[in-house]
Design a binder for these strands. Sequence first.
DNA 1: CGACTGACGGTCG
DNA 2: ACGACCGCCAGTC
Length: 130
Amino acid sequence: MPTKSAPDKTLAKILATIRAVPRGEVAGYGEIARRAGLPGRARMVARILSGNEDKQLPWHRILRSDGSIAFPKDSAYYSEQIQRLRAEGVNVVNGKVRGRKTAATMDEILWAPPEETKASKKEGVKKAKS
DNA sequence: CGACTGACGGTCG
DNA sequence: ACGACCGCCAGTC
């Protein structure tokens, strides 16, 4: 194996970070790299994933920074990734993943955390709890 | 050693 | 919202 590439340590770190992504969650390439302590190595993460063979690896949870699928729509992986994500309860629309940022449903808005409390300035939007 | 490439990211028109 | 451009990093030719 001629290519020695990055130290196995780095590789392991990245893989570990990817595996650390909880089910039903998604993360960007750059995000993974950054979490792994490798800022600016987004492409390296992509390279690793491109050559991965580990089925255990939740590669489908890795998307672009804008939340879109990294594959062209005509790619087989494209649909597969979306299916896997949906299987985990992730909302995917038009090749893009809807994180909690985009409040798709009204429920999401009403149930949203006090972060965007701007809504609270309205009338009696009392916050509810589970 | 230099050019090309890629499951990227951010900016600009 | 979308595509064109440019910048980055590591690997391959």
